[in-house]
């Protein structure tokens, strides 16, 4: 296979000598390191399943009653103290905040990538790379504190007559900035991987720069651009601390949005204190006794997040195959 395989086995001191033994040992050692990763993937699945699925199984370690899948995954009624464990509003919260963030992050991220790869002069390219590197390097708690001490008061005093601004809008705007670097850097890879002849051909046929970008380059890069957006989505769904600090942490947000009548529906949706899968975990996990249905359901939410991650990675694989086919 590898030409190096045959070449390095040419004996200079005989295959039994120490360095050849070491060579073989090293192979196993490196393989073991790689297998650690595989073991971790499987281990996370096993341990989260053990705790997450415990809620639905009649196990001896359970301290409460056995829950049905339906009352957990198809109900938005979360009242652990009165034995009701519907997590649908957290799923809806996660999807809402992610969707809102993508609404801005996907187009602006892709267009920034277009700009950096095709239009920007050299100094601007370097500057934008630096900016994206810094944005991706800022810790999520620092994003959170910025939202908490700067964005929330600003929005509240400017738009809301000083009523609290926590909720999806501020959470999503912070998430947008957090996931844009991911989308930009992967989209830049997508544009850089396109053959130069595509762009040159379009320009030679008399299209403007923008026409070439919009009608030729973006469609040609579409599968990889979608991969970029999907991975950005993965980051947004999994983000915990920054969102937890600004979203308001109200498990009953769905009913509040439905019932409140003092504001327009969109305003209510954007500014009602809400909760997501990750924020509920951060908020409630430390206070729940192990083995209780409450605790088990929280682990089930973690399992759900993990399965979503796996789904997202597999989806990008599919997109990638379509791109290369």
């Amino acid at each position: 296979m590898d030409p190096a395989e045959t070449r390095h086995s040419l004996p200079s001191k005989g295959p039994g000598s120490l360095r050849f033994l070491l060579d073989r040992g090293a192979h196993s050692l490196f393989l073991a390191c790689a297998l650690v990763v595989v073991a971790l993937i499987a281990g996370i699945l096993v341990f989260l399943s053990m705790r997450g699925l415990a809620a639905f199984l009649p196990l001896a370690s359970n301290t409460g009653r056995v829950l049905s899948l339906r009352e957990v995954f198809l109900s938005a009624d979360w009242a652990p103290s009165s034995d009701r464990f519907g997590i649908l509003s957290f799923v809806a919260g996660s999807l809402s905040v992610t969707g809102l963030a993508l609404l801005v992050a996907a187009p602006s991220g892709i267009l920034t990538a277009v700009f950096v790869t095709l239009l920007a002069p050299g100094w601007m390219k370097a500057l934008m790379r630096q900016v994206m590197d810094l944005l991706v390097g800022i810790p999520s708690v620092v994003y959170g504190i910025f939202g908490l001490t700067f964005l929330l008061p600003l929005v509240s005093s400017k738009w809301l007559h000083d009523s609290p601004a926590s909720g999806f809008l501020v959470a999503a705007s912070i998430l947008t900035v957090m996931i844009v670097p991911t989308i930009v850097s992967l989209s830049m890879d997508a544009f850089e991987a396109l053959p130069k002849t595509l762009d040159e051909g379009a320009l030679a046929l008399g299209s403007t720069r923008w026409q070439s970008i919009w009608r030729v380059l973006i469609p040609a890069a579409r599968p990889r651009l979608m991969t970029a957006v999907v991975l950005g989505m993965g980051r947004a769904i999994g983000e915990a601390m920054a969102v937890q600090m600004v979203i308001g942490n109200n498990p009953a947000w769905l009913s509040l949005v439905r019932e409140a009548t003092d504001r327009a529906p969109l305003m209510r949706f954007l500014f009602t204190p809400a909760a997501t899968l990750t924020t509920e975990l951060v908020q409630e996990l430390p206070n729940t006794p192990a083995g209780s249905p409450w605790n088990n359901v929280l682990f089930a939410m973690g399992l759900l997040l993990y399965l979503m991650t796996m789904g997202i990675i597999l989806a990008t694989r599919r997109l990638g195959q379509r791109g290369s086919a």
Binding site: V37, V38, L40, I41, G43, I44, F47, L48, R51, L231, G234, I237, G238, E239, A240, T278, L281, V282, L285, F299, G302, L305, Y306, T309, M310, I312, I313, T316, R317
Partner: peptide, 17 residues
């Protein structure tokens, strides 16, 4: 695939593990 999955796993999930 495994490394991408681990890289994409949210830190809160690693925390639970």
């Amino acid at each position: 695939l495994c490394i991408e999955t681990l890289a994409g796993t949210p830190s809160i999930v690693l925390a639970l593990f």
